[in-house]
């Protein structure tokens, strides 16, 4: 008797008739999670191959404190890592506004979603703008870092106009930050499309703001990847 009652209370999630992921996990959310799982392996492969090349490298790796020491409008001011910290702050902030947007969606609050999702879009555009400036600065400087060359070949990865550092540095930097930037770009495009749908009141009519949570997951993933890109390129030093 008691076991039957127990079974009725807690149905076995693996015996069919009911989703093993419960009612809170919708189809769209589950598929977004599985997409992000596969995407994390794509980024993981990039970053791990970057690690492999760094391990196999016999030269000193470019010192990030020297490579990334410029700030827009400040000429030759030596401000190591300050600009990238600003970029990181912008991305974390846009993640916070996205969480608040998802929350507003759960409360069926159309104005709240428009406000917070709008701020997330602005944050994403600001981040991309920063990245565009950083790339331009690196590619068009007097001693550019690009796919074919890298002037940071001195001792401890310092700048040396007469020697060449590992070429792989620029190749990995532009590939990985470019792939991340492309994710930010697609995130912005998707966010803008959903924002317009919210403006038209599509989800207010159906009463289902689930899509905000799904695109929110994608946006947080972009932030998550940046945490690892930031560590790999700007923090981890040569042994």
């Amino acid at each position: 008797m008691s076991t039957v009652a127990l079974q009725e209370k807690k149905p076995n999630l693996w015996q069919g008739g009911i989703s093993p992921y419960g009612e809170t996990t919708t189809w769209g959310k589950l598929m977004m999670w599985f997409f992000l799982l596969s995407d994390s392996f794509t980024f993981g492969a990039f970053l791990i191959s970057y690690g492999t090349i760094r391990f196999a490298n016999t030269q000193d790796w470019p010192n990030p404190n020297e490579v990334f020491s410029a700030f827009p409008g400040l000429g030759h001011a030596d401000l190591p890592l300050v600009f990238v910290s600003l970029m990181t702050f912008i991305l974390i902030m846009s993640s916070v506004t996205m969480v608040l947007g998802v929350r507003a969606g759960k409360e069926n609050n159309q104005k709240g979603v428009l406000l917070w999702l709008g701020l997330t879009i602005i944050g994403g555009i600001m981040f991309l703008g920063c990245q565009a400036w950083e790339w331009t600065h690196m590619l068009t400087g007097e001693h550019p870092i690009n796919l074919a060359g890298n002037p940071y070949g001195g001792p401890d990865g310092s700048f040396d106009a007469h020697s060449h550092g590992p070429v792989a540095f620029g190749q990995f930097f532009f590939t990985i930050t470019g792939f991340h930037g492309f994710h930010v770009f697609t995130g912005i495009v998707i966010n803008i499309i959903v924002w317009l749908f919210v403006l038209k009141g599509v989800y207010s009519k159906s009463g289902d703001y689930q899509i905000i949570e799904n695109i929110g997951l994608y946006w947080h993933f972009v932030d998550l990847v940046w945490v690892f890109v930031f560590a790999s390129f700007y923090l981890l030093s040569s042994l």
Binding site: Y21, G22, T25, W33, S95, V99, L217, H220, D223
Partner: peptide, 15 residues
Amino acid sequence: IISEFMHLKYEVKNL
């Protein structure tokens, strides 16, 4: 980020 922002901490254990 994963547990709070992506809300995974509060999801079904199977997920």
